[in-house]
Amino acid sequence: MKGEIVLEARDLSMHFGGVHAVDQVNFALWDNELRCLIGPNGAGKSTFFKCLTGQHVPTHGDVVIRDVHVAGREPHQIARLGVGIKTQVPNVFDGLSVEENIWLSARRWHKAQRAKVLTQETLERLALGDIRSAIVGTLAHGQRQWVELGMVVAAEPWLVLLDEPAAGMTHEEVETTAELIREVNKTATMIVVEHDMQFIRMISNKVTVFHEGRILIEDTMDVISADERVREVYLGHKSQ
């Protein structure tokens, strides 16, 4: 891999009582990479994700984003480093309009004038222009996911962390989302947590597989889908 490491997890552990949700994970992300995290339910990928975004304070270990130690920091401090985050459950401002949602993201990092332009551009980019004044809470699930993606994109982050961006979307929506992610990847380094294998095939070159709080394997999608252990983890033990 060329470039420098922009995000690193060192010996990262997250314990809930006796449950080791994340167990001594060492993880490195290179500049401009688009990395997918996969794994069965309870593999610890979402917990790992939450440690990266500051929603959890890790029990042990550290997360380093561009030489800044961020473990235990507030989510807004991590976002302030230029990190765009989308959570698993759509986290949007339900009572506000689509435009206001996007604007709130753009305005955080840019002056009023530029924020207006960015909001406009993002609405067009995500084809949300027709529903710009709609209240987000009244929209369909897929559209709300898009509004959240729009909020992430509007801030022009250099590092983007997405937790299940295609969850609950129709097949067409998934394809458009994949396209958008590839486009965003041109200017930003990304981590995408996903379930949908087809979706991962559309976007990713390198995949990290989580299993029981640890990293099982890290390779290209072709190698991973051929790997015996991964199949076992996903489908349970193979029948005779």
């Binding site: 807004h76 976002a79 401002f93 959240e148 801030a155």
Partner: peptide, 24 residues
């Protein structure tokens, strides 16, 4: 104002406001 709009956003969803980088 921006302050007021962000305050309303925080009322709507604290976590989202934080993830956008606002110190709620």
């Amino acid at each position: 104002t921006q302050f007021g709009r962000v305050s309303v956003a925080i009322r709507e969803n604290e976590l989202r406001a934080e993830l956008l980088g606002y110190d709620i």
